[in-house]
Design a protein around this nucleic acid. Structure first.
Lengths: 224, 224
DNA sequence: AAACTAAGTGTATAATAGACACATGATGAA
DNA sequence: TTCATCATGTGTCTATTATACACTTAGTTT
């Protein structure tokens, strides 16, 4: 590769970063979209993102874009896929490296109000028409999230520090879009050794309080 | 994203494509490397690749690079990951989209001789020092290949059109780097419904001839 | 004290994974 | 033609994992 070309001599594409920030609110899986102020696709919804800077890595750039857009930091980010269809941006050649990000509801509460007309969460079941090829990117991201639930601890990114097993099960049910058996779910999740118990939780209704758990590690781990 | 910037105003990184072409030869997993003729890393070994053209998609570009380097076409290609550390190329900012490619030994026989001093297959267990961050890219690709064996039909990319179950098992053993039980392997692979029988094979030694099989589909399929 | 509600718990069955050894059918040599 | 050779091809038993399924518990509220 790169047999001594002067790399500056050739046309170069632009490289963008797009971030798919998923969260769970109101018992629904939601994703952050921003309304575009400019052409192309003015007035349409798109993922937050922007161009990569010359001196930052892709992951740092994705984190920066997300922070600029939402104020969120220290959240889970992973590279999803790179979309490079030459016509995906009508202006010029733009290659987009998409990132998957996850936030707990409580993280987001900090910022949810400030910029509401420009950026908001949308339930994934009711998305508006998306700009560029973002519909395709969305579908890829949703599918990745669903499969990673099954063989990693990725759910830690969507839950607060402490949570009940029922809340964890709800997270799985919402993303996988199907009901799970309570006893089997508990047996399986506890057998993974990903969780550790903390104390008791009361409030939250006229019923028996639930035990609180926490993920032992908040970095991604693969089962088996 | 892209709030009406004039995208041509900003510095842009270069975007390269690198292709990890795996094959099996002499009972070993091998990977294609080319010797660099120019700086940087002159004389060192690297993956075949080059810069993406303005009017081709990433996958088409990766296929083109591979064809230019080896003459191979119509082989399995999948995007692996995008490597974007700002210092990964000492000349300038180069973001590399890495692709995983697989070829059967017979495919390669066509070309193996022509350019031998510049491009050759290396057993993955005995790689030379690699240029750029290609060691890291290699490790990522090898790991991806191993895990995809377990939940897809990706082995079709490494085998000729027809093959025996023993040859298929050898492929798995070489990549996973462990022995598998013959009866269990056959039971499992036949239960997937990925294969179909064709006829009988003789030759190849003084022993009972083996049944030949073929993958029903030569596009990637996921189990379950 | 009684009604309400989500939390919490066990067992039986089915499906899957893993360990393990010998007969078969060609080839080739005597 | 017979016999030795050698990779092919095959079945069962056991352990593990996945799935289906219903009642008691411990707080809160009235």
């Amino acid at each position: 590769m790169m047999k001594g070309y002067d790399v500056t001599k050739y046309d170069r594409p632009s490289v963008a970063l797009d971030v798919l920030l998923f969260t769970i609110q109101e018992n629904q899986l939601q994703i952050l979209l921003v309304k575009r102020k400019e052409e192309p696709f003015q007035g349409e919804w798109a993922f937050p993102g922007g161009f990569v800077k010359m001196n930052e890595s892709l992951e740092v750039g994705a984190a920066r874009e997300l922070r600029e857009e939402t104020g969120l930091k220290d959240i889970y980010l992973e590279q999803l896929y790179t979309f490079g269809n030459p016509k995906r941006d009508p202006r010029t050649r733009v290659i987009s490296v998409a990132y998957l990000a996850l936030a707990a509801k409580t993280d987001w509460a900090i910022k949810a109000s400030t910029d509401a007309s420009e950026a908001k969460f949308w339930p994934v079941s009711k998305l508006p028409k998306l700009a560029f090829d973002h519909q395709e990117i969305f579908e890829y991201g949703l599918s990745r999230l669903g499969s990673k639930l099954n063989y990693t601890n990725i759910a830690f990114g969507l839950l607060p520090d402490q949570f009940t097993l029922t809340e964890l099960q709800n997270t799985y049910e919402i993303i996988l879009n199907k009901k799970l058996d309570k006893r089997n779910f508990r047996k399986k999740i506890l057998s993974t050794d990903l969780l550790t118990s903390v104390g008791q939780k009361s409030s939250l209704g006229a019923h028996r309080p639930a035990e609180l758990f926490r993920f032992k590690k908040k970095e991604i781990e693969y089962l088996n």
